[in-house]
Each structure stands twice: as C-alpha cells, then as structure tokens.
Computed example of a mutant assay.
Amino acid sequence: TVAIQRCQIHKARNIMDRLPKELHASTRRVLRQAWELDDAQKAEKLIRNLARRLEQDRPGVAASILEGLDEILTVVRLKLPTELRRSLACTNIAENMMGTIRRVTRNVKRWRNGKMALRWVAAGMIEAAKGFRRLKAHKQLPILRAELLAHRERLAEKPVAPVSRAA
C-alpha cells in the first residue's frame, strides 16, 4: 500500500466540531501529544485511549477519532524528523494547489481528450507554483525519500497469504 498522510489539523477540527467546549482542551492536548511522539505505537495507544474514554457518551466522536487512524500517524510511523513531520502533517499545501487547478479549469466546458486535461492541469499547477513558498524542512526531503523507499521495501518483503479456492 501507499503511505498516505491525512491532515491532522483538519482531523482535529472535525473532532472538535462534534465535542462540547468543555472537552476541547483535553482532547486537543491528547491529539497533539500523540502526534508529537516519536513512537507510532505509543501515539496510537494514546489516541485509542482517548476514543475509549469518549465511547460511552460520544460514540460518534470516538468512531471519528479511530477512523483513518493509520493515515493520521503515517509521518510518525516513517520516523521523520520533527520539522518535516510538522510540514507534512497538514494537507494545506496540496489542497491549495488543487484549488488553483479547479479555479483555472472551471471555465473549460468541453474536454476534448486526456491530453487537453493534462495541459490544463499543468497550467493550473504553474499558476499555483507562483504562490509556493519553500518548505521549512526542505533540506530534510532526502530523508523523506529514503524512508518512503524503505517503507516500500518493507511492504515488498511481507509474504502474501495464498488464496484458497472454494470448490
């Protein structure tokens, strides 16, 4: 599988929207503490404990906390440096570019073929690039590349269970 990181900021916001104000500070503190840990198993345990505490009174919130749990901790599992984790834990960079592409392509009424779509998307990306700033942790990107390659290798090493055929 591909390593996917879901936005921690949006996840926290969605959780807070469903909680009463008196639970915001403690919930936000647990989420932040989990996301700042270097150990993904400990982080997952913290988040699961939070969900367990909320399960009785707020089952919907507890389910929301657990939904996508693996994808919320991807940058922690990859053991990335803290500064790079902070930069990649939020999807705003990608969403900003996608919004620019939508804006650039919204007036196209008739898509002739795939090549035309690619040209328009490229034009949108060029437009979006005008507003790009350097990633704060840009010097750590080789670490990200190495960790993603190692992740891919670990996945390739896992044996696949044989498929049994029903008679």
Rank of each mutant, 00 (worst) to 15 (best):
T91K: 06
S87F: 01
K115I: 13
G99A: 07
R103A: 15
R102F: 12
R119T: 14
M98K: 04
V121A: 11
R106M: 13
R106Y: 15
T100I: 12
I101H: 09
A122Y: 09
A117S: 01
M98E: 06
R102M: 10
T100P: 09
W111C: 07
K109D: 02
A89L: 02
M116L: 07
A89V: 00
T100V: 15
N92A: 01
E95P: 04
N96D: 13
L84T: 08
S87L: 09
L84G: 01
R102L: 11
G114W: 09
G124Y: 00
T105H: 11
A117I: 10
K109W: 05
R112L: 11
W111F: 11
R86A: 11
C90Y: 02
N113P: 04
R119I: 13
N107T: 10
G114P: 07
A122H: 05
G124P: 02
K109R: 11
C90Q: 05
G114V: 12
V121I: 14
R106T: 09
G114S: 12
W120S: 04
N96L: 13
N92R: 03
I101D: 08
A94E: 05
G114C: 14
V121H: 09
N107M: 05
A123V: 14
N92F: 07
T105G: 14
L118Q: 15
R110W: 03
M98Q: 12
I93P: 02
I93R: 12
C90G: 00
I101Q: 02
V104I: 10
R110M: 02
R85D: 04
R112E: 04
R102S: 13
A117E: 03
V108P: 00
A89S: 03
G99H: 03
T91E: 04
M97W: 13
N113M: 07
V108F: 02
K115L: 12
A122N: 08
E95T: 09
R112W: 01
I101V: 11
A122S: 08
V121K: 05
W111A: 04
S87T: 10
T100S: 02
M98L: 11
G124K: 00
N92Y: 00
N92W: 03
V108C: 08
R106F: 13
M98D: 06
S87V: 07
K115T: 10
A117K: 02
M116V: 12
K115A: 09
A123L: 14
T100Y: 05
R106W: 15
L84P: 07
I93Q: 12
K115E: 14
L88H: 01
T91Y: 05
M98V: 05
A89G: 06
M98Y: 10
K115F: 06
R112A: 09
A123M: 13
C90H: 03
R103M: 15
T105I: 12
L88F: 01
A94T: 03
A94D: 00
M97D: 14
A123W: 08
A89C: 01
K109L: 10
R119V: 12
E95I: 10
S87G: 15
I93F: 11
N107Y: 05
